[in-house]
Design a protein around this nucleic acid. Structure first.
Lengths: 257, 257
DNA sequence: CGTCCGCGTTCCAGTGAGTGGAACGCCCCG
DNA sequence: CGGGGCGTTCCACTCACTGGAACGCGGACG
């Protein structure tokens, strides 16, 4: 795990990794502090990295460069949905500090792939691998809205399980909500699956911009959670994942580890 | 330019760079061939890179890993619109083999920021820095559709310059096209600015998902170009840029080089 | 004005990390 | 069985990398 600090490569990687989304530009001294490496070494290696277009040197410090960005993009293709999504989920959690979920459909129900945060609320059946009905979760609605007509029909005409007093069991209302999802790109849930919990979700779309590969959501307690405030952040994250997943066909959901 | 091949770092970078979107997985032998480095060195360095989570080793070869991807994402924030967009423009060009444009609005007209391809058609006023009216180009329409009402109004009620027999000069029709852009995320142009040229464009949206930061387009000759075939690719590229530009406020259009 | 501090840069002699040619084992194919 | 391509391992040489130290600069402070 710990990058080997006794090799050039290890030092270089350590330097590159000490940049964070918060601190884009780091001075030499700051790099020395963060990495614990000798000043001269950091100076030399950073200079080399600039030469290799992995860092930009600007007055005031260094910055990860466009070359680095491009290299990362190349890595995004052929990547697993989870791998691509994870940074976005992290980011989303940083912004909202509420529980973040990534989920797909197995054709009948929501299947949760990943969950971040949620120190506050224990458990919920949303642990990775957990399942929940499509009709009463934000992720489910986001997926269902983009699902093929048959699935929609079978869900809408089937029994809509009542999980809470607020679960929507009227097909007409649900239908209208799904239409709204297509228009706004955002799905909501208000205590429809678990009392006290609100949720916003956005679909991760395939290249065609129609079929949903997965959906991302943010969940929080009725007491303080304002779903609409996070709607754009959720949508942005979902779009980000969409655009990266979309490149080059392979939509393998699970890791081949 | 040429990465220094006599240093560990240089070799490592060379190895990383020899992965392309087409060839995701490279065998050791293939890496040796591409880099021209001695087999033993490639083997050792690749192994190290795996240790640093920059490469995955899987049966059959190596692959840029999730760690690499994440590092690239970090580099995307604080990046210039052009820098972020460029890889997507490249990719779009690879797919379509038609002229690709990136453009913004300066509040009155389209300003072209970048252009790729177009060996076939000479010039056009679209060279980076060039300007074109908003009402008769696909990029212009994409931008205008998301512009604030005042700008829309002033353009629609002003004189719509007739550049070709096909230029749309009826405010009503233009208005309807702009509405369509908002719905579909795609803007079209058919010989409205230059005889013989068709164009598809999609807006690069800001975090809020409403205001357009820029737009991306693909242009081709009437003779063979099928705009609708490329619509999804263009939209995907634009969304990709959107999601990356959206992270962390700074939308600086030009480079600070 | 002098002093001090933090930062970036440069120097340089010592040395061990990196080097790469070569040899090895494996598998597939003819 | 022999040949070729591939991944892996070995190892003695050496030169690229090391990092402590010294330097120059600019800004803050008294």
């Amino acid at each position: 795990m710990a990058a080997d600090l006794d090799t050039v490569l290890g030092k270089a990687v350590t330097i590159l990794r000490s940049f964070t989304p918060e601190d884009q530009v780091l001075s030499l001294a700051e790099l020395v502090r963060r990495t614990g490496l000798p000043k001269a070494s950091v100076h030399r290696i950073a200079a080399d990295l600039v030469g290799y277009q992995l860092l930009d040197k600007l007055r005031g410090g260094y910055r990860l460069s466009g070359g680095m960005f491009e290299l990362g993009l190349r890595a995004s293709a052929e990547r697993t949905l989870l791998e691509v999504a994870m940074p976005f989920l992290q980011d989303l959690y940083e912004r909202t500090h509420e529980t973040v979920h990534l989920g797909t459909s197995d054709g009948q129900a929501v299947v949760y792939i990943a969950k971040i945060g949620g120190h506050r609320q224990a458990a919920s059946p949303s642990r990775a691998g957990g399942r929940m009905p499509l009709h009463c979760t934000a992720i489910g609605k986001a997926l269902l809205a983009h699902a093929d007509p048959e699935l929609q029909h079978s869900i809408l005409t089937g029994t809509l399980e009542r999980r809470t007093p607020y679960t929507i069991i009227a097909p007409g209302l649900l239908r209208r909500q799904l239409d709204a999802v297509l228009e706004t790109g955002t799905a909501f849930e208000r205590e429809e699956s678990t009392p006290g919990l609100l949720c916003v979700a956005s679909p991760v779309l395939d290249v065609d911009g129609r079929t949903a590969v997965a959906a991302i959501s943010v969940t929080g307690p009725v007491t303080r959670f304002r779903p609409d405030l996070h709607a754009t952040a959720v949508r942005a994250a979902a779009q980000g994942v969409s655009s990266l997943v979309a490149r080059r066909g392979g939509t393998q959901v699970s890791s081949t580890r």
